[in-house]
Nucleic acid binder design. Structure first.
Lengths: 141, 141
DNA sequence: CTTGACCTTAGAGTTCACTCCAATGATATA
DNA sequence: TATATCATTGGAGTGAACTCTAAGGTCAAG
C-alpha cells in the first residue's frame, strides 16, 4: 500500500503518517524506488496509535508504550511504563465519571434550547449551567 | 484576591489567567494601583472555563458559550451555539463509550503487569493489547 | 529608604501535532 | 514523449494554549 492509499483508508493526511514515522511510531518498508510500502504490521501500528491517541496519550507516550510492548523480560518493562499506564487509568476513570455527569446536564440544557424556549427557560438554563459547572468543579478539582 | 492567590487556588499560573483575560474569558476589576482584583464572579467564570475545558471545548468555544449565556432572547441564541452544543454532546457520548471499553482492557493489562508477571504473562498481555486496539478500532473508526 | 516580593505591560518563545512548501524523482496513461 | 499524478526530502509555517522575558511600577517589613 502506498502512502496515499493508507492515508485515505485511515482518514489521515499522508503528511501525518510521515510525521508519525519521523517520531518513530511506524516503520514502513521501502520499495525499490524508495516509496514507502505499508503492510499489515504498519496498519496495526497505526490502529494502535489512533486508539491510544483517542485515549489521551501523547505521541511521546505512545512511543513509550511501543517500547514496552517489545520487551520480553519483566525487568526491562520498567517502572515508568507501568506508572504511565497507572496514571492514565486513573485519568480515564476520572474522565468517564466526569463525562457521565456532564452529559446529563448538557443534554438537559440542549433539550431546553431545542424546544425553542430559550427565552422562557433562560433562567432555568442559566441555573443549570451555573450548577453544572459548580457541581463538577466541586467534584473534580 | 490578587492574581497569585487565585492562580494558586485554582492551580494555574498567573500567566494563564492573564491569557484567559486577553482572550476575553474573564474580566477582573482593577484596584487603584492597577492590580487585578479577582472576586466571586471571576471565580465562577474561571470554574466555568475549567469545566468546559475538561469537556473538550476550546477557548474560542468557551467564549461562544459565554456569549450565549448572556443573551435573553431566543433569537439571539443563534444556531451556531446550539450546533456547538449538539456536536459536543455527540462527542461526549462517544468518548464515554470509548473510555468505558478502554478502561476495562487497560485495567486488565495493568493488573497483569502489577503482579510482576509481565514475563510469564507477556503473551497474554500482548494479545490483550492487540485485541484491545483492534476491537476499539473496529468499533470506533 | 532599601530590599524583596509582588504587580503591570508588550511581545517573544515554546510545545505539540500537525500541515504545507519547494525542489526533485518515479510511474501510468493519451 | 508529454503530462498528470503520485512519490521523495528537508525544512518552514500554523494554531492552540500557554509560558517566559524584559523593563518597569507598587508596597510591606526591617
Amino acid at each position: 500500500m502506498q502512502i496515499k492509499e493508507i492515508a485515505k483508508k485511515y482518514n489521515l493526511q499522508p503528511d501525518t503518517i510521515r510525521y508519525y514515522e519521523k517520531e518513530n511510531l511506524i516503520y514502513p518498508k521501502r520499495l525499490d524506488n524508495g516509496y514507502r510500502d505499508y503492510g499489515e504490521s504498519c496498519e496495526e501500528q497505526l490502529q494502535f496509535i489512533l486508539v491510544f491517541k483517542q485515549l489521551g496519550f501523547s505521541i511521546k507516550e505512545i512511543h513509550q508504550l511501543f517500547e514496552m510492548r517489545g520487551k520480553t523480560i519483566s525487568i526491562e518493562c520498567n517502572d515508568t511504563s507501568v506508572l504511565l499506564l497507572d496514571q492514565k487509568i486513573t485519568n480515564i476513570e476520572n474522565k468517564i465519571e466526569f463525562y457521565q455527569h456532564a452529559l446529563k446536564v448538557i443534554q438537559k440544557i440542549k433539550s431546553l434550547i431545542d424546544d425553542g424556549k430559550y427565552a422562557e427557560n433562560m433562567e432555568v438554563i442559566e441555573k443549570l449551567l451555573l450548577n453544572f459547572y459548580k457541581d463538577i468543579y466541586k467534584e473534580r478539582f
